[in-house]
C-alpha cells in the first residue's frame, strides 16, 4: 500500500507567541519547530500500516527549507522518503492545491494528515484535498484499520463517536488515540540521513485569504482567591456580578 502523510512544521506547543513589525509578523525568536502534534499521530499510524502491508510511506511538507529538519525527523520516525514542495504556504487552499497536484502525479491508496495544524488551527486542508481529487475525506479520525480496499474508521463527534467504512483511496484527518507517538531511535536517526528528501517546484496558484495583522488577547486580570469557607460568597458573585450562572 502506498501511503502519503502530509505534515506541518509548526512552533512547539509550549512556545511563547509574539509578533513583530507592528503585529504583522510572527516572532520566531527562540521558537522551536516540531512536526504538528496531530500530524505526528497520523505519521505514527502510517508507519504501523506501512509495516503491516509492506508498503511505501512518503511524507510531504509544503514549505521552505526551514522545514527540512522536521522532514528528517519524520524519516527517522519511519517514513521511506520525504518530499518538500518548495514554497511559503499562503493559506489552506494554496496548500491543498499543492498536495492535490502531488497526489495526482503519484498515486496513493491512503493520504493521512493531522486534523488541523497547531498554528493556524484551520482544519481544512484534508477536506479541500478530498474535494479537489473527488475522493472522500474523513476527519477527525480516532481509529483507522485497512481491510483490503476498504478503510474502517472511528470519527469523533460531539459527545461520542461514529463508526464508518469508506473505500480507498481516501483522505483522513487524524487525532489521538489513533496511534502512540513514535520517538525516533538511533537506527532511525542514522538511516534518515541517507533516505531521499526531494524538493519540488510549487504549482502557481492564488490564495483565497491573507493575514493582515495579528493580535494577542488582553492580559488576564489577577485571580480572586477564596477559601473553602467562602464558597457561598463566590457563588453569589458568579451569579450577580459575573452573570455566568
Amino acid at each position: 500500500m502506498k501511503i502519503l502523510v502530509c505534515i506541518t512544521h509548526v512552533p512547539d506547543t509550549t512556545s511563547r507567541i509574539q509578533f513583530t513589525d507592528n503585529n504583522t509578523t510572527f516572532d520566531q525568536t527562540g521558537v522551536q519547530y516540531v512536526i504538528g502534534p496531530y500530524d505526528d499521530y497520523a505519521l505514527a499510524r502510517a508507519v504501523e500500516l506501512r509495516d503491516q502491508t509492506s508498503g511505501k510511506l512518503t511524507v510531504l511538507n509544503v514549505g521552505d527549507a526551514a522545514s527540512d529538519p522536521t522532514l528528517r525527523k519524520a524519516l527517522a520516525i519511519g517514513a521511506d522518503e520525504a518530499v518538500r514542495i518548495d514554497t511559503v504556504p499562503k493559506d489552506s487552499f494554496y496548500v491543498a492545491r499543492q498536495i492535490a497536484h502531488f497526489v495526482e502525479e503519484n498515486d496513493f491508496d491512503l493520504i493521512l494528515m493531522g486534523r488541523e495544524s497547531s498554528d493556524f488551527n484551520g482544519g481544512m486542508v484534508h477536506g479541500m484535498v478530498g474535494e479537489l481529487l473527488g475522493l472522500p475525506s474523513i476527519s477527525p479520525v480516532m481509529k483507522l484499520e485497512i481491510d483490503g480496499k476498504t478503510a474502517k474508521l472511528s470519527r469523533e463527534i460531539e459527545g461520542g463517536k461514529e463508526e464508518l467504512e469508506a473505500p480507498l483511496p481516501l483522505i483522513v484527518g487524524c487525532q489521538e488515540p489513533i496511534a502512540e507517538w513514535k520517538i525516533p531511535n538511533m537506527r532511525g536517526i542514522m538511516s534518515a540521513r541517507t533516505k531521499p528528501l526531494l524538493v519540488k517546484e510549487p504549482l502557481s496558484e492564488q490564495s483565497h485569504a491573507e493575514v493582515v495583522s495579528y493580535e494577542l488577547p488582553p492580559a488576564k486580570g489577577a485571580v480572586r482567591l477564596f477559601t473553602t469557607d467562602q464558597v457561598d460568597d463566590l457563588v453569589k458573585l458568579l451569579k450577580n456580578e459575573a452573570n455566568v450562572l
Binding site: D91, S92, F93, A96, N121, G122, G123, M124, V125, H126, G127, M128, G130, E131, L132, S137, I138, S139, P140, R155, E156, I157, E158, G173, H208, A209
Partner: peptide, 23 residues
C-alpha cells in the same frame, strides 16, 4: 464550528471557490 461543520466547510470552499475562515 463542529466536527461535521468543519469537514463540510472545507469541501464547500473548493466547490464554491469560496475563501474559508474558521474559528
Amino acid at each position: 464550528k463542529s466536527s461535521l461543520g468543519d469537514a463540510v466547510a472545507a469541501r464547500l470552499s473548493v466547490k464554491l471557490q469560496a475563501g474559508l475562515v474558521s474559528n
